[in-house]
Design a protein around this nucleic acid. Structure first.
Lengths: 209, 209
DNA sequence: TGATAAAGTAAATGAACAGTTACTTATGGA
DNA sequence: TCCATAAGTAACTGTTCATTTACTTTATCA
């Protein structure tokens, strides 16, 4: 009946929903407690303050991301097939962002608010970026990809294209009168982006349909 | 000494700064008043409520955008040169987003919060999107561009790439250890994006260096 | 079994804040 | 010049909310 771990877990989950929905200052500790079915007192017992609860939520989300990235890295770090690696990274990104809408929202808020130190620390450890960078550099060296690519710009483009599909999905749906939140549209977007990026990166003579 | 118009204007400007900085619930009416050097009472006399003040700020920003877009439309709506039109639209987007960081922030917040009715209404009137659509369709018909493009996806890509450079500029600067806010980097990004999009859209045989 | 520490509750406290009220001062037309 | 009205001020009100306090219940192990 009494279980500190479970209670913490429920608080964390409710907090993730509330903070990603309403932001730090918009979020209500009372709402979090109501949703979690936990007494307000426990927030302070377990987390210390609203702010520390927010940080815990953020930390938790970055953990999930890091976990996926590690798996991806292990699978592909020795792959010679540049195009497969790029495809896999895009696919992984799409899957993660689709499965974790609150991650998308929290990251948007981090971009708006101040980029908490925690985020800075996590960004610096990110693996997928390094994997992608190495894949592109290897592809350029081996002649699979164009030789004159600006690697940083390519990374920027690719990362940005994945993330912003999800972060601007609402305004874009209105702007283009299409529901981009459907699975069908998400899959389509992934396909289009992958093809576009590959066709841009590939050497001309290796161009395929 | 007393001037209702000037007072309103000062309030609006201070409100734009405060709302885009802190969001609706994070923004403090007292801060807006202090910055504007205006008594709190006047917010309620002139705008009615915090919420209506927010709406006025948003409206004002959309007006600025619409103004630019109309000018762009007049200049390019009859142009036959698809590539020049695309270049001009990207250039205009970059200029506007660079000059109006609070627009970027407010739009991010609209995406996060709920997309106010006002935003929906403004999105529906947007001109640059239609101009771009027509330019691409014309380019496809005339054979300047690939014939099998998915126009909606291209519009999505282009709009997104411009906006998200500015909206994610902070996390990206950290992630890639580069200050993307400098004029130099902004110009570089515009150049790279323009070239990338054009090289992707062009028919293969018309490919240039 | 019963004492003690952990888990949980309900209600209070006080600060921050949006919105109001009652009042004062400047301005411009009669 | 004076008065009607618009512009502006300062202090107050009521609410919302994060955080605390004082108290109760449950579990565990000596």
């Amino acid at each position: 009946m009494r279980n500190a771990e479970k209670t913490k877990e429920r608080l964390l989950q409710a907090a993730e929903a509330e903070f990603s929905q309403s932001g730090f200052s918009g979020a209500r500790v009372d709402v979090i407690c109501r949703e979690a079915n936990v007494n307000k007192r426990m927030v302070y017992a377990y987390f210390g303050s609203k702010e520390k609860l927010y940080t815990a939520v953020l930390h938790n989300l970055y953990q999930r991301l890091a976990h996926r990235e590690t798996a991806l890295l292990e699978e592909y770090q020795n792959s010679e097939d540049t195009e497969r690696v790029i495809e896999a990274i895009i696919a992984d990104n799409f899957q993660f962002l689709k499965d974790n809408p609150s991650f998308v929202r929290m990251l948007m808020r981090e971009n708006l608010d101040q980029i908490a130190d925690l985020s800075v620390a996590m960004f610096e450890k990110t693996n997928a970026m390094n994997l992608l960078r190495r894949a592109i550099e290897r592809g350029m060296a081996s002649g699979q990809l164009k030789a004159d690519l600006d690697v940083d710009q390519v990374l920027l483009t690719l990362t940005t294209l994945c993330f912003s599909y999800f972060s601007n999905i609402h305004s874009m749906s209105i702007l283009m009168k299409t529901d981009f939140t459907s699975d069908e549209q998400i899959e389509k977007r992934e396909r289009v982006l992958t093809q576009m990026m590959l066709s841009y990166l590939r050497k001309q003579e290796e161009q395929r349909s």
